[in-house]
Amino acid sequence: MAPTSRLGPKTIFLMKILLNGEMREFEKTKTITDLVSALSLEPKVILIEHNGLALHRVEWSSCILSDGDCIEILQVAAGG
């Protein structure tokens, strides 16, 4: 049975994240790895900044997300 809170079902899992300048809500995203997976991104080409700090790839799985976190996701693109 799904856990509930006073605010209704599921809200216990909802997390607000400022993602690339836009406020978004996510469910069940505990780590950066979960977030990458939730967004269906190809991990190889993306770069992630968590609250202003550049993350190494190995840190993705251990970086725990909190409500209100600021995440920037960049990707390698063509350029001169």
């Binding site: 690339n20 967004l39 080409v45 693109a77």
Partner: peptide, 19 residues
């Protein structure tokens, strides 16, 4: 190469796999 904000719209980007 350049670094730019990832497109999170879910649209297929033909240059996404440049590497």
């Amino acid at each position: 190469v350049a670094l730019r904000r990832a497109d999170l719209s879910g649209k297929k980007d033909p240059f996404a796999n440049i590497l």
